[in-house]
Simulated scan of single mutants.
Amino acid sequence: MTNTREILLRAAARVVRDQGSKAFTLDAVAEVAGVSKGGLLYHFPSKDALVWAMAAERVDALRSQLDGYREANPAATLLEAYVATIDADQTDMDAAVLIAAAEQPRRGADVRADFAALLAQVTDGLTDPVLGDIVRLAADALWLTSLLHLDQFDDHRRDAVIGRLVELARRADSEDPPE
């Protein structure tokens, strides 16, 4: 069974998805979640706390996606897993990452540090870390353009782009010297 905290996080994400960030208020979240504002404040004492909890939830979900991919593909590097799953399960929680970064650029140091550490792990120890950085940044751009509905790829082209990025991710960790 889903707990109240999870219900509130999902409701907050739905508010952002359905109504936009300007409509993202504690009152709107409480209404969508079907709880009183006091009930919401019990779990999240401020809008800041709610936003950063949403961002932390997304980082945790990404970590779980990476772990799941690597369990199914034991030879995969973390970079390959990152690229292969970057677009697999965009959630409403992804918008929280953008809200958190845009509305509170100096807050959420712990979530930022956790996410930065995860991103550093993605390319850590690669044979060609620069190629790894390029691949990760391209995957990030793919995620962002999709989230903002800016990407013009059909599914076939998108799959081909992801496939090529996976190939490059593997090459970034190959023993062959970079070209």
Rank of each mutant, 00 (worst) to 15 (best):
E175K: 12
A100C: 13
D114I: 01
T25D: 07
V135K: 02
A61L: 10
Q65L: 01
D110H: 11
A28G: 05
G68S: 14
V130Q: 15
D89M: 10
L119Q: 15
Q65Y: 00
G34E: 04
L79D: 06
R106F: 13
D67E: 11
M93Q: 12
L147I: 10
T123C: 09
V97F: 05
E57Q: 09
S46H: 14
L150P: 02
A100G: 15
S46P: 13
A139I: 08
F44Q: 10
L137W: 10
M93V: 11
H149I: 02
R58F: 06
V29T: 13
S146P: 00
A141Y: 04
V15H: 05
V59W: 02
M1A: 15
L78Y: 04
R58Y: 04
A95P: 00
L98V: 15
V166A: 04
E6C: 03
H149G: 04
T2M: 13
S21I: 03
R17M: 06
T85D: 01
Q152C: 03
G108I: 14
A139T: 07
E175P: 01
W143C: 01
G20H: 05
D27F: 04
G39C: 08
L41H: 11
L118D: 06
V29R: 06
L50W: 08
M54F: 02
L168R: 02
A160T: 09
P177Q: 11
A81M: 06
L119K: 15
D48M: 08
L66P: 11
P105T: 08
L150S: 08
D89V: 02
E167H: 04
L66S: 06
D128M: 10
A28M: 03
G34F: 07
E6Y: 04
D89L: 01
R58W: 03
T91Y: 00
R158P: 01
L131A: 07
E175T: 14
E57I: 00
D94T: 10
A120F: 02
A141V: 10
A33G: 12
R158Y: 02
L8F: 07
R170I: 01
L26S: 04
A30S: 14
M93R: 12
S64V: 09
D89H: 14
A117D: 12
G132Y: 07
G34V: 10
A76R: 15
V16R: 03
V32I: 13
V83F: 13
L150R: 10
A56C: 03
A172P: 03
E71R: 14
A12S: 13
Q19M: 08
R171I: 06
D67G: 09
A53F: 08
L147C: 02
E71C: 01
V51C: 13
V35K: 09
I7M: 03
D89P: 00
A169W: 05
L62E: 00
Y82R: 15
R70L: 09
L131D: 03
A116V: 05
D124S: 14
E179A: 11
K22Y: 06
P45K: 14
P105E: 06
L131C: 06
A33E: 09
G68Q: 12
A28D: 07
T25L: 07
R63F: 01
L137Y: 11
R170F: 01
V83H: 09
G132F: 09
A113V: 13
S174M: 11
D173E: 07
L9I: 13
A28Q: 04
L79R: 15
E6S: 14
V15S: 05
R136W: 11
I162K: 12
L98G: 02
M1H: 12
L98R: 02
L26N: 09
L137R: 14
L66T: 05
